[in-house]
Design a protein around this nucleic acid. Structure first.
Lengths: 118, 118
DNA sequence: GTAACTGGTTACAAAAAGGTAATTACTTAC
DNA sequence: GTAAGTAATTACCTTTTTGTAACCAGTTAC
């Protein structure tokens, strides 16, 4: 899968994957969260995918992983300083989602046709 | 692929796919563009994928397709009124991408380790 | 001694997405 | 009559992503 030449593309590939933005949203709104808490907040994600995403975000300097050497282990995740830069993106997405929901937008259907508009 | 339960998820699936955000960026910065112009601005996209994306964005009320009945045909695409709501998202992405580039961020590598930081 | 707890990993199968290349339609210019 | 031009469509194959299910480690509580 080659780059598409757009300078924003690497960022997009990093933060917009399935579940990824949701994880960022949770870490942004809830702050530090443990692995199990993230699993609980996203009931349909599998441990495999959550691990993949967290490792990827860690590699990219967006999320910080902290492990306490206890038994059983306690691992928590939080946004790094740079990761918090993403709040503008996440909030913009949220704003539009809320706006469009109010307008009755539905995926693959668009906006309801108003007789006297569009 | 089931929904992940997040209210922002449908919007994410719609506007963050491969090429999709790039198309939105181009329509946002350049205004109305013809099919062939879009192809020219994204040299690596195929006609198939571009058509898929444009149809999808049209279905979702984000892009408006206008066809002139000439031979050969002239088809152009522009953002709808609601599609223009996405400018906050697109600009936020651009802002972060530029910022992170300045900081030396690289995909899968993160930010360069500064001796006296992090 | 065995189950529970947390945070994973691994192998495998299924599904979705993406890319390639050939083909179409219609008319005008050569 | 044949090529050019625009905007696609179609069939097919490959790659990527996603999900499922089983398994592991180390210690404590029962």
């Amino acid at each position: 899968m080659a780059s598409n030449g757009c300078p924003v593309d690497p960022l997009l590939r990093t933060i917009t994957g399935r579940w990824t933005t949701h994880i960022l949203w949770l870490l942004y709104t809830e702050g530090e969260l443990r692995f199990g808490e993230l699993m609980g907040l996203m009931p349909d994600i599998s441990a495999k995918v959550l691990t993949d995403r967290l490792r990827m975000l860690e590699r990219n300097g967006i999320v910080l992983r902290t492990q306490k050497q206890t038994i059983p282990p306690q691992v928590s995740y939080e946004l790094t300083k740079q990761g918090q830069d993403l709040h503008v993106v996440v909030r913009a997405l949220n704003t539009v989602a809320v706006e469009w929901q109010a307008l009755g937008w539905e995926p693959d259907k668009g906006f309801p046709a108003l007789e006297a508009a569009e």
